[in-house]
Amino acid sequence: MHTRKRQGTDFVEPDLPITPMLDMSFQLLAFFIITFRPAPTEGQIALALPKDERPGAVTPRFPMDVPPAQLTVRVTAAANGTIERVTISEPGSAVFAKDLGAKVEAVRDELATVAAGLSRENRPARLTLELDEKLIQEYVVQLMDTGVRAGFADLSPVPIDPNRR
């Protein structure tokens, strides 16, 4: 019977140097931890676009059972683009425009009160934001945010009519 003779009795264990790899990994980890900056979460606020004023342009009309309540918030801006004065009015109503000063909190409270009343009547509402052209985007979004949080889904930002200033 043929027997195989084992050659080289010394068994050499393969040695994988982990330490330098670990050093490099720690350096990479440190780099990514230091440079890590999570991206802010972005979201959208939907808005109704202005009417197409060109001749012959057709604006789609959607049938509604109940005519929506029209509410207008007019905002004038200071020279630096911040809010100067806010008034709220309902076109066609006997109530005059209500002056809310320059605080967005006052607008929020007033809109919430109006929205609650309309909700009880089960009446849709349309909020028109008449904004000063100088008003900066930060306040535009802040006012739209206030409107949405108060319960208005149909928001339309438009510039103040220069004839009605």
Partner: peptide, 30 residues
């Protein structure tokens, strides 16, 4: 941009409408 005036933003919104787009959304940090 948060410092952009409403005049400029509104002009772009009107341009979107004139180009035939009806759905426009403003982006903000949540």
């Amino acid at each position: 941009h948060k410092e952009c005036s409403f005049e400029k933003t509104y002009a772009i919104m009107k341009a979107c409408r004139q180009a035939g787009y009806l759905k426009v959304q403003l982006r903000a940090i949540r």
